[in-house]
């Protein structure tokens, strides 16, 4: 009798084993799926909360970090401005020039928060930025056009740069935003830092035809 009972439970367990494995595998798959989807979908992300509120190709000054305002974990000494891009509308051109009083940096972030580029004013010539954000397809198209136009004129066209100070940034995703950061050395210096960000330009370029 005992023997039959253990046989019965062994049978039951063996019957359920594939289901247990399937549940485990499904759990792992779901974990990875939610993990990868979450940064793009969560309404709390910086892109959804801040960038999506501003139109593409316009610079928006963010509120200063103070109790009750500003994005979480932002530096009270940093003045931030952002510009959203959507490369399906065309490449985005960023121009900015640092004044000498406020350390200045630029970062380019995708909608899921990945930072694909970041640099400060000491890493660029004369503290000025000239960045063109493109997709791979747009980059290929403009390369092809340039090759056709200037094949005989300028045979030594090195890939990546069109003119001297332009940085062409190939973005793996179409949506994202650029963040400009000017640091003030004193908390009372916010207005001057905000003025430093006034020179930032951000515009959608018409796709090359």
């Amino acid at each position: 009798m005992m023997r039959r009972e253990t046989d019965f439970w062994l049978d039951r367990t063996l019957d359920l084993l594939p289901w247990l494995l399937a549940a485990l595998l499904g759990g792992v798959a779901l974990h990875l799926l939610t993990l990868l989807a979450l940064p793009r979908l969560t309404p709390s992300s910086a892109y959804r909360r801040l960038a999506l509120k501003t139109p593409v190709g316009q610079v928006a000054l963010l509120p200063r970090a103070a109790p009750g305002t500003g994005p979480s974990f932002s530096d009270p000494f940093a003045t931030l401005a952002l510009c959203r891009f959507d490369l399906s509308l065309g490449p985005l051109r960023l121009r900015a020039r640092a004044d000498n009083d406020h350390p200045f940096s630029v970062s380019v972030r995708l909608a899921d928060g990945t930072i694909i580029y970041s640099a400060n004013d000491r890493q660029t010539p004369k503290g000025s930025f000239n960045i063109l954000i493109v997709t791979q397809a747009q980059a290929d198209a403009s390369d092809l056009q340039r090759d056709n136009a200037g094949a005989d004129e300028n045979a030594a066209g090195d890939a990546g740069t069109v003119n001297e100070d332009e940085l062409r940034l190939i973005s793996p995703a179409k949506a994202g935003f650029a963040l400009f950061r000017a640091l003030s050395l004193r908390e009372s210096d916010y207005d001057a830092a905000a003025a430093a960000l006034a020179s930032v330009e951000c515009a959608v370029e018409k796709p090359a035809r």
């Binding site: 709390s44 992300s45 910086a46 909360r49 994005p71 979480s72 974990f73 932002s74 931030l80 940096s105 970062s107 972030r109 928060g113 930072i115 580029y117 970041s118 640099a119 400060n120 890493q123 963040l179």
Partner: peptide, 8 residues
């Protein structure tokens, strides 16, 4: 909802 510093 943070915007961490870029490595640059």
């Amino acid at each position: 909802g943070a915007m961490p510093l870029g490595e640059g």
